[in-house]
């Protein structure tokens, strides 16, 4: 059950980091939103599509978490606590990474890309603008996939749940992931010794944006006009 040794090795001349490699392999494919073509466009339809997509993404992301080196060694209760705190940050970071190639659009799924007009229609303009602020930050930095996968694992390990039983084990997980990011940057971006720190410094905005998103979807839930699946509801209630 020991955490994997942090080490660097060389594959085909490219220096890689073991933890980063594991996270790259574990990274799930995007899923499709599949909005119902028989239903006319409306705010309710957009929100229903997004909530359904989020529910399915969550299942995928729980499967992903189990592949983070060291995560399965945590107690089941601590695994739950981290996911209950960090799930929305993970969902948002995935949307952000998918959106890096586009201008002012959010790729919720390959078949569900929201521009300003669609955001307005769905009542998500403020939230989507906040997410676009993150996209802009990572675009400026030129966020790489390797950095994205480690940052996402760090966001989960660092989700600051109040219910952690074994905080030393969670700290060890954070240290392994943080070390992996530092090693990656030392090898791949020696010209910018502060790059790992710069990436970590984007996490407060991610936390803040995720909190806004949770708040927004909690009020949508209270309205009761948008159907939501059980896992999504369960995690909204955990907040």
């Amino acid at each position: 059950n020991a955490l994997p040794q942090k080490k660097t090795f060389s594959v085909g001349g490219v220096v890689e980091n073991k933890v980063v490699s594991l996270l790259l392999v574990a990274e799930p494919e995007g899923i499709f939103a599949m909005p119902d073509p028989t239903v006319p466009e409306s705010d309710i339809k957009a929100l229903t599509t997004l909530c359904d997509l989020a529910d399915r993404e969550l299942v995928v992301n729980i499967g992903w978490a189990k592949h983070i080196p060291g995560f399965p060694s945590l107690s089941l209760a601590d695994q739950m606590s981290l996911l209950q705190s960090g799930w929305m940050e993970i969902l948002i970071l995935r949307v952000v990474f998918r959106s890096l190639a586009l201008e002012d659009k959010l790729v919720y799924a390959e078949d569900y890309i929201m521009d300003e007009e669609q955001s307005k229609l769905a009542g998500l303009l403020d939230l989507n603008n906040a997410i676009l602020q993150l996209v802009k930050k990572y675009k400026t930095m030129g966020l790489e996939k390797e950095e994205f996968v480690v940052l996402k694992a760090i966001a989960l390990a660092n989700s600051d749940s109040m219910q952690i039983e074994d905080s030393e084990a969670v700290q060890r997980l954070q240290d392994v992931l943080h070390g992996a990011l530092q090693d990656y940057e030392a090898t791949n971006h020696p010209e910018d010794p502060r790059r790992a720190g710069k990436l970590i410094m984007t996490l407060p905005l991610l936390r803040q944006t995720a909190a806004r998103a949770v708040q927004h979807f909690c009020s949508i839930k209270q309205d009761g006009r948008v159907p939501m699946h059980k896992l999504f509801l369960e995690l909204l209630e955990a907040k």
């Binding site: 729980i62 739950m80 369960e234 995690l235 955990a238």
Partner: peptide, 20 residues
Amino acid sequence: KEKHKILHQLLQNSTSPVDL
């Protein structure tokens, strides 16, 4: 934790992580 049945099930149904 009782309230979080689905998350619990999804985590528990895990086989151990695949040997990558």
